[in-house]
Design a protein around this nucleic acid. Structure first.
Lengths: 210, 210
DNA sequence: TAGATTGTTAATCGATTAACAATC
DNA sequence: TAGATTGTTAATCGATTAACAATC
């Protein structure tokens, strides 16, 4: 696999994957980059260029085998085999994430859930018992979980992160609106809901002809 | 205001805004682009370039007045005065959004909430009563709401969108994993949680040295 | 005035698009 | 073979970075 793939390419792959999964479920066996592009509002060249970073997946004159391409894109993204993740913080957002179907569909299983709030510990959400944060290092280390989802209040985010790092987590998906300090070997993905709403608000104003 | 601002610039403005709000609340009066950049892990030139699209906000040799810059960035984004929004779909994600503090902080108030599910209609979430979708056109049109947040299942998203458009909504923040068809004058912002997780999963694999 | 920092013009870098050869 | 569609090389476009003049 090549060293430096453009970030925009990486962020389009999940779109391809989902579209392919949908095509597969509706019984489509073969798809051209042109057709895929129509469905996604992305040019066919862009799609072929993106895929070309990783290999040759199509048949000239024919197109792509839907099932096979889906498998291979999933493999590129590390979504080809079940991956257990830890969820920390079971406020409203945490509970929404715990119940989000999209994860399971891509092979991500929330294997453990933690919260500091004693009134939440012991409750069952989405079929899982909430554990106390005290047990996080032990449990995460023991189960060998790599990815943690962080949906705690901003003021607690760095503290929880330090614990997660100590527990051996190597990727953190952070919904708290703070930049986390982590060692170099830990990947952080910052999710930032308000950006979406503010950007939308800007384009709304612009559309008005402002 | 200039016509064509780079999209990346627009998406950084909310980060500036939040950082400035935080500085203000900690009593910082003046900040340089260098300092702001350190806090956000963005270069100072990038920040100055971004701001330059909209005008001159700083004082050479001094820096930026935190309160004044915050006000002006908020104005650019249309977050300088309260904006009412409609929330459609009160599943787990919808309820999380209804309770999300970040919106209020930026002047967005969820003024009305709708759901199809009769067992949800009438319930109170985050201090608001859930209304039936049947009343959506009337209520939205009557209150003059511009922005709708869509957190309904994928299969219902287009149907609800058509109603929202009929009700006069001009911007839709869509959490359903489908591309919406809307008339040209309606802005759509596609939010896509799974992209974040899959991208993280990719970079985790890469980090491994794969 | 000297030091600091902005705003802007020019150079570089990276991503998208266009053109086309390869091949099913 | 002719038509379709991929994969790739070259050209264009757009965003970031570097350099620097303006000015507090």
């Amino acid at each position: 696999m090549v060293g430096n793939i453009p970030r925009p390419t990486i962020e389009r792959l999940p779109l391809y994957l989902r579209c392919l999964a949908r095509l597969k479920s509706t019984g489509v066996d073969v798809v051209s980059s042109e057709e895929l592009g129509k469905l996604l509002a992305i040019t066919s060249v862009q799609i072929r260029k993106d895929l070309a970073f990783f290999g040759e997946f199509g048949r000239r004159g024919i197109g792509y085998d839907v099932a096979s391409l889906a498998r291979q894109v999933a493999a590129i993204l590390g979504a080809d085999q079940p991956q257990r993740i830890a969820l920390v913080g079971l406020g409203h957002l945490g509970q929404a994430l715990a119940n989000y179907e999209g994860f399971r569909e891509h092979g991500f299983n929330i294997a453990v859930m933690f919260d500091v709030d004693p009134s939440k510990v012991g409750l069952t959400v989405a079929g899982q018992k909430i554990l106390p944060v005290d047990r996080m290092v032990d449990v995460v280390r023991h189960t060998g979980i790599d990815i943690a989802v962080l949906s705690v209040p901003a003021h607690a985010a760095q503290r929880v992160t330090d614990v997660l790092v100590r527990a051996g987590v190597r990727a953190i998906w952070n919904f708290a609106p703070v930049r986390l300090n982590v060692p170099e070997h830990v990947e952080v993905r910052q999710e930032n809901l308000i950006v979406g709403l503010l950007a939308l608000s800007y384009y709304l104003k612009e559309g008005k002809g402002g």
